[in-house]
Simulated scan of single mutants.
Amino acid sequence: MRIRQLAALAALLMLSACGFQLRGAAPVSAALQPLAVECTTRIPETLCQAVREQLRLGGIESSPPEAAAYRLKLSQFKETRRASAVTLQGAAAEYDIRQSVGIQVITREQIPLVALTDVHSSESYRYDESSVLAKQREERAIRETLHQRLAQQIIFRLAPLSAERIQAILERSTAAEPEASPGP
């Protein structure tokens, strides 16, 4: 019994030393606080909730836009569903669902920390005409899974935004402003 406890302790120490984190708990910098999550009307609510939940798991609390120093904007949500395989009778045997969403992180002063970029996710599933209701439920579950994946990808895009990196972006932005203004 003592050997098992020592082995478990050794495994725990190794995992903590290598930077292991539970899935979904992305290392989002506290420098992004306070952060507002803004979703346009076309963004599914389950996707917005998944992003907020992933942020919460990463230790970042969402704030209202007027109180936030930074804003994470989600826009341009797209979803396509297409047949990716057909039966001998010409009916769809497999479908592919693809989702994408545009993300952007800006400061209160409208300085972009993450320029508008798209993140994508897709999943395929088999379709059986004899169990249409079950396949509709499966398709809804797949959509929610894709929302979770998109949320995780968004969080991983935020991970590099440390306090130092944010400061460097802000300094470059203020240094570029005088050059942009016309001379006398």
Rank of each mutant, 00 (worst) to 15 (best):
M1D: 05
R2I: 03
R2D: 11
Q5A: 12
Q5R: 11
L6G: 09
A8F: 10
L9G: 09
A10L: 14
A10S: 08
M14E: 01
S16P: 03
S16M: 11
A17D: 04
G19N: 03
F20M: 13
Q21Y: 00
Q21D: 01
L22Y: 05
L22G: 08
G24V: 03
G24R: 10
A25M: 12
A25R: 11
A26P: 00
A26R: 03
S29W: 03
A30D: 05
A30W: 00
P34Y: 09
P34G: 08
L35S: 01
A36M: 06
A36P: 01
V37T: 04
V37H: 04
C39Y: 04
C39G: 08
C39H: 03
T40I: 04
I43L: 07
L47F: 04
L47C: 09
C48E: 15
Q49K: 14
Q49C: 05
Q49F: 08
Q54R: 15
Q54L: 04
L55D: 05
L55Q: 03
L57A: 15
L57S: 13
G59V: 03
I60K: 04
E61F: 06
S63E: 00
P64R: 14
P65Q: 08
E66Y: 06
A67P: 00
A69K: 07
Y70W: 09
R71L: 10
K73D: 07
Q76I: 00
K78R: 14
K78Q: 13
T80I: 04
R82E: 15
S84W: 00
A85E: 02
V86R: 12
T87Y: 02
T87D: 00
Q89S: 13
G90D: 05
G90K: 09
A92L: 05
A92Y: 01
E94G: 10
D96Q: 08
R98C: 01
S100C: 11
V101I: 15
I103W: 02
V105D: 02
T107W: 02
T107N: 03
T107D: 05
R108H: 03
E109V: 00
I111D: 01
P112K: 08
L113W: 04
A115H: 11
A115R: 05
L116W: 10
T117C: 04
H120N: 15
H120G: 06
S121I: 06
S122L: 10
S122W: 06
S122E: 15
E123Y: 04
Y125L: 15
E129W: 01
E129K: 12
S130E: 02
S130M: 10
L133A: 13
A134R: 14
Q136D: 09
R137P: 00
R140W: 00
A141I: 09
R143A: 15
E144K: 07
E144M: 10
L146C: 09
L146N: 11
Q148H: 12
R149K: 13
R149G: 12
L150S: 10
A151H: 14
F156C: 04
L158N: 12
P160A: 08
L161W: 02
L161M: 14
L161Y: 01
L161N: 06
E164Q: 14
I166Q: 02
I166V: 15
Q167T: 15
Q167H: 06
A168P: 07
I169D: 05
L170V: 10
L170W: 03
S173R: 09
T174D: 05
T174F: 11
A175N: 10
A175C: 02
A176N: 12
E177F: 03
P178T: 11
A180D: 05
P184I: 06
